[in-house]
Simulated scan of single mutants.
Amino acid sequence: MPTIALLALLSAPAVAAPAGPPTWTPDLTVIDEDDSNVSTTGGAVTLGGTAAEHASARTGLATGFLQLTPHTLDQPVNRVAAAVRSEVPAGAELAIDIRGRLGEDEWTEWAEAKPGEPAVISAPAKVIQVRVALTAPKGQTPKLTALTLNADLAPSAPSAQGAAGLSYRVFATREGLVGGTTANGHVIVARDHFVALPSRRGLASKGTGTYSVKVCAANGRCEWAPVWDVGPWNIKDDYWNPSATREMWKNLPQGRPQAQAAYQNGYNGGKDGFGRTVANPAGIDLADGTFWDGLKLTDNSWVTVEYLWTAGGTFGTVRTGGDALNVRTGASSANAQVGLAANFARVKVECQVTGENVTGTQGTSNVWFRISAGKFVSKAYLAGVGTVGRC
């Protein structure tokens, strides 16, 4: 029998779109490039066709996402509840995620609206977006047949992160899995450039870098890469967030992945969220190109990760058309390469200098942006950068 559950939603600054009331019923029939492995046949959202038979190499579960058209409200909100009509087989999950727009390509982190527990986003917003997340064992699928959302402004809400953003030292492993499909529907290629984090709260859509990280190795090299997969051990461990708002494992300190606590301290009996014995303390997975070419790693290693969507400031999006962008020690191709910035990755721009004239996807320019101490990229390959001062 269909079940009805209460869930929740969020919002962000105004954009050009018709404003609406705090209660709305979204169109569940539209699928576009932001969606992966879903079908809306007959108005019901399910896992998609033959792709639903291809289980994740990590969890054995098929995953699909339907990202709905952003909805504009008359007033900012930070809390969204959802009424859902669904059918969810045993072992499957149907979740409603909410986020709010903060700027042109800036959003709050995704927050799940659970039964009786509205989603609360990190900052009030007028534009709210909903994502339907479906997971199931092979041969099964959840079914969403109706969704109604209600938003309001909570008396108190989590404050937005400061300019510096969150950064932690965690253990990194190499993802591999070439030819496999990531959680957001990207097919992994050789020498690929992206990362996986163990929570979909920071999962970017395929071909976008809304949620990106800066990951640096002990050798001084760094790569800026989009978050395109969920893993390596858990799928609901947003360890970078404060314990009070963490999805699971709330008794662990902020910045400590559950897998690390399980491996080093026997936390949860040494098991991950699926009951598997944790064989390493990984808090991030790196695609092969990020691992070998960006960071020049030869083995799994401790790295420092900055979760860039938690930071304020000026950002740009790497647009190379394919290969990763060289990051250099100065404003010239003659300067040493000290890292890479993946295509689609978001990078924080600190300031600009005048240097070598470069022609790229964004035109010809002699401006170079400093994106970290001693690390520069050409403006010719960075889109969406606002006004920044000179270094």
Rank of each mutant, 00 (worst) to 15 (best):
T108P: 05
L153C: 04
V84H: 03
E112V: 02
S122Y: 12
T135L: 07
D152E: 10
K138Y: 07
G103H: 09
G100D: 01
L102H: 10
W110E: 02
A119F: 00
V120S: 12
P124R: 02
A157I: 13
P155V: 08
E109V: 08
L144V: 05
P124M: 02
D97Q: 13
A113K: 03
A151R: 13
P158A: 07
E106P: 08
A136I: 07
Q129L: 01
V130Y: 00
G139P: 09
R85M: 12
P137A: 11
G103F: 06
Q140M: 08
V132M: 05
T145L: 03
R85P: 14
E104Q: 15
V132R: 02
K138D: 11
T108W: 01
G91I: 09
A83F: 08
A82F: 02
E112R: 01
N150V: 11
I98M: 14
L94A: 03
E109A: 09
A83N: 14
G116N: 03
R101F: 01
A81L: 12
A157T: 09
N150K: 14
A81I: 10
E93M: 13
A157V: 14
A133H: 06
A119T: 00
P142H: 07
I98A: 14
E87G: 15
Q140Y: 11
Q129C: 02
W107H: 07
A133P: 11
P89Y: 10
A123E: 12
T135K: 08
T141K: 06
V120R: 08
I96K: 00
A83Y: 12
E112T: 02
A125I: 04
Q140W: 07
A111W: 01
A151N: 13
E117W: 11
R99D: 00
E117V: 14
T145N: 05
P158Q: 09
V84P: 09
A154R: 06
P142Y: 04
G103L: 05
A146V: 04
A92H: 06
R99L: 00
A133W: 04
I121H: 10
S122W: 11
A92Y: 04
K126I: 12
A146T: 08
V127C: 05
D105G: 15
D105C: 11
L147Q: 00
G103W: 03
S86E: 13
I121D: 13
I98Q: 14
P124D: 06
S86P: 15
P89T: 02
A90R: 13
A83I: 15
V88P: 12
E87S: 15
S122N: 15
L102F: 08
L149E: 05
V127M: 02
N150G: 15
A92S: 10
E112I: 03
P142K: 04
E117C: 11
V127F: 01
A113W: 02
S156T: 14
V88Q: 11
P142R: 02
R99C: 00
A125L: 05
G139A: 10
E112M: 05
D105N: 14
A82C: 12
I128V: 04
I98W: 11
E104G: 13
A154F: 09
A133V: 07
T148L: 04
